[in-house]
Structures are given as structure tokens and as C-alpha cells.
Computed example of a mutant assay.
Amino acid sequence: MPSRTSTTISGSPRNPLVRRLLPEPAELRAEEIYGGLQFPEPPPERPCVALNMVSTADGKITVDGRAGGIGGQVDRLVMRLLRSRVDAVMVGAGTVREEKINLGLPQDLRGMVPEMPEMSERDLLGVVISGSGQVPLDNLVHNAGERLLFLISEGAPDEAVETLSTRGEARRIPEDAGYGTTLAVLRQEYGVRRLLVEGGPGLNRGLIGAGKVDELFLTFAPKLAAGEAANILTGEALEAPAGMRLISVYESGGELYLRYSLQRG
């Protein structure tokens, strides 16, 4: 059994405390939650893919149509810290339609994580995947040094390509291409080795069903929502449940921050 580490840390509303429950119990500041985080080495044909989601205790990923009201202060910080560790963050167009979203690397992290001085000097690639090319650009918050890539199907209208090109690069993908082709494009043509996916549930299900997800970061909020909101996965049942191994558990204010590895398919 791992020994319990006793550490005295003074917390504040700006720097709340987090308890690490697994692998080795400890008390630390929220910005240290994933200090030294290392992702698995990606396979040669695609990036290492990690999902990052927040859910109520009864499995809902939105409240009143929005995900932003589920997690607390530490959850929002965890999302930003995870983004600082990857090369690109990807969402489905449905997520952009639901609410305003910022796909950049937040500037408020500068100086917060001393072992990562380079993160204030690079731009994060924001990727939106859409079959139709219908993406509400007003819901994509502008970022300094913005880099946006829209992956759309070959059947999307030219008007959609022209509109998306006003904000970033619009790249067509063959309509019958699977997620393997999409991920190969990101790896081979854009140099993405670590990809963070932030939903929605249809994109999550497609990637897991294709065996292309390596890790899942899940914030479990102490809230109950009920209703018809989706879970972190939606769509047809998987052929077999995807196996996962628990890597770490953190807790703050009743929220749990879970990290799992998935079996590669």
C-alpha cells in the first residue's frame, strides 16, 4: 500500500486545495493536479487521443443545454491545464452549436505552472469536425494567435468552405473516411502527437467505437440533473464495453477528477 503523504498547504478561493486519493494520497494546490503529466507514446499512424468530459452524478453532460454550469472552479482549471499539455483540441460541430466555446490556450495560465514556460510561447491548434460544414462561427471565441482547422466532408457545400475559411483552414475529408483517416491527417500533415477531444457525445462514441481513444479524463460533479440531456457517449451501443483502467483520482469540494486509460483497439 502506498504511504500517505502529509503536506501542509494554505489554500484560497483563487488557489483551492485538491486531495490526491490515487495513486499516492497527498494534498496539493489545484494548479499542481496534473504536474508532470505524461501521455502514452502515440502509435505511428495517429496522435495519442484523450477525451475530457464533465458529468453530473446521474451522468448528464449539460444542464439547461450547457456544459459550463456543471463543473466548478477546479474543473475549469483542470480543463485548461490539460489543454496546455497537448498539441490540439478537437470538438464536434454540435458542441459549437450548443454554446460559445473557446478553443485556445487560456492566457490566465501564464506563470501559473512554472515547469511549462513554453506554453505562453506556442499556439494551440483548435479543430472542429463537421460533416455538413455548418458551424456557427459566432460561437467560436476569438483568441490571440488563433489557429483553427475545420475538417469537413467532401460533400459540404462550397459556400460553407468559403465561410469557414474566414476564420481558419477548411480541409475536406472523404465522406467515407473513418476516424483513422481523420486522425492520420492530423498526425502526418499538422504534426499533432497529443490530441484532446472535448465532445460532443457523438464524436466521443465514434472515436471509442473505432478504438482510437487512449485516455479519458472525467470530472464527476456532485449534482443531479435528470431530464433528457445526453451522457458522455451517445448513439448505438458499442459491440462490447470498452475496458478502462483507473490511473488517478483527485477530489476538491466533492468533485472527483478521474483519469482512465482505455484498451487500444
Rank of each mutant, 00 (worst) to 15 (best):
G168S: 02
M112I: 13
L81H: 06
S10I: 11
M112Y: 03
A144I: 09
G227C: 09
L238A: 03
P241K: 01
R97Q: 13
G145E: 09
G178M: 06
G133D: 04
R46P: 13
S3I: 10
R80P: 02
P42C: 14
R167I: 09
R66N: 11
Y250M: 11
R66A: 15
V96W: 01
E159H: 03
S130P: 10
Y179D: 06
D75W: 04
V161L: 15
A156H: 02
G131T: 11
G69C: 04
M244R: 11
V192Y: 03
Q38V: 15
A26C: 11
S120K: 07
L81D: 12
Y179V: 01
K100I: 03
G104N: 08
R97E: 10
L256M: 14
G155F: 00
D75T: 06
V197W: 02
D108F: 04
E31N: 09
Q38P: 02
G200L: 07
E236D: 12
V86E: 10
S252G: 03
M1V: 13
L21P: 09
V113S: 10
T219I: 08
L256T: 11
E189A: 10
R147I: 00
R172G: 01
A230F: 06
L149Y: 09
R80F: 01
V18K: 09
D158E: 15
N15S: 14
R85I: 00
T62L: 08
R110E: 14
S153M: 00
E255C: 07
D214H: 15
D158S: 02
D108H: 13
R147G: 05
F217G: 05
V74F: 08
G168F: 10
P42I: 06
G104E: 05
L233F: 14
E255L: 09
P16Q: 07
M244H: 02
Q134A: 14
A237E: 10
G200K: 02
M112H: 04
P44M: 04
V213Y: 12
L216M: 13
F150M: 08
L77V: 08
I152T: 13
A226I: 04
R20Q: 14
S153K: 06
K60I: 05
V161E: 13
G209L: 14
V89H: 01
G265L: 13
G68A: 12
T7H: 14
A229G: 15
G211V: 11
P222V: 05
G133N: 06
